[in-house]
């Protein structure tokens, strides 16, 4: 495991940017690789609908 950890710090990190894409912009400008995941809270953040989805999906 320690070897793997050492390897991990030898390579450039890849960032996962979930939700607001703007958070990845500065990392990208600094030269890092950013993988964007398009996500937003279900039903635009409506907690009642989110609870309903838990029951139905």
């Amino acid at each position: 495991m320690s070897v793997l950890l050492e390897d991990l710090f030898q390579i450039a990190p890849v960032f996962l940017n979930v939700g607001a894409a703007v958070f990845g912009d500065s990392l990208r400008e600094a030269g890092y690789e950013v993988v964007y995941v398009d996500w937003s809270p279900p039903a635009g953040g409506d907690a009642r609908i989110a609870d309903l989805l838990d029951d139905l999906l």
């Binding site: 039903a43 989805l53 139905l56 999906l57």
Partner: peptide
Amino acid sequence: IRKVVQTN
């Protein structure tokens, strides 16, 4: 409709 609402 569930997937539409879940994913917006």
